[in-house]
Write a protein that binds this DNA or RNA. Sequence first.
DNA 1: GATGGATAGATGCGAGTGCATGTTATTTCA
DNA 2: TGAAATAACATGCACTCGCATCTATCCATC
Lengths: 148, 148
Amino acid sequence: MDQHTTEPDISDLWARFMRVSQAVLGAVEVDLKAAGFPPLAWYDAFLELRRVDPEGLRQFELQKHMLLAQYNMSRLVDRLVAVGFVRREPCPEDGRGQVICLTEKGRALIDAMWPAYRAAITAHFGGRLGADETAALGGMLEKLRPPA
Amino acid sequence: MDQHTTEPDISDLWARFMRVSQAVLGAVEVDLKAAGFPPLAWYDAFLELRRVDPEGLRQFELQKHMLLAQYNMSRLVDRLVAVGFVRREPCPEDGRGQVICLTEKGRALIDAMWPAYRAAITAHFGGRLGADETAALGGMLEKLRPPA
DNA sequence: GATGGATAGATGCGAGTGCATGTTATTTCA
DNA sequence: TGAAATAACATGCACTCGCATCTATCCATC
């Protein structure tokens, strides 16, 4: 347990952390796609839109929450609008901005996706962890959360 | 603490797990890029090449280790060859296949990248976790590891 | 109330990724 | 042995992403 042993452990742990989280995320995405649903990021956006305000959200607010680059958010909204899951509306308080609103179709998709999403999360993530582990993971994530 | 509270906890934990791991990975990539180095995936490939066999690895072996799709591996090798970090050599035992070998330039890059990489991992990952937490995380990752 | 700087969002372009399929070589097995 | 199935790798195409840049609006200050 001297200092020399900690360094290789961390780099190995890092590699495994990245590999596993990528694999788990990928597995959930695969399940969703197999069930005929759009990618996770869409669901995330819908959920946040519904959660925060039925009146809609500014694009930059959504973007901040999703940790997405500005141009990616812009294009994601493009796609969501193109298939009719959200609407862009002019923003009364800021002429530069816009308000993103869930459509009925979008709301319906959230409910339709949830069972498949939940099953996938359970299969690849929650169902593999015990109660003590989920608690520990929660604390860890808190510490890893970005400095900003 | 009844059963109803566990379900939202898991889905919330999942969301945070994904968000945090994406953010941490992104932060490390940003640091590497800022230091003028190629992306993490390159380093991974180099490291695995050096670790397993100085004679080189088959493309599909590397691909399996890196959890990469076959076509992505093929193209990654394209890029690595294009900048001279690896070589493709014909495989004596299998005419379809090839052996991927690190070049001297590639070997040198591993050593050049390590300090920056190590610093980034420490800053965004290892340095934020205590010894007990790294141990707990290790166990968790074991359970989350894909079934295959 | 004009002007310089900051902020919200869009977009052209090059590079990366997923998907389907193609090519060549190996294995299986009748 | 010879045809069918499979494995290793490549590639055309559409879509997504990162980067830089552009436009339009807002705000602060003079």
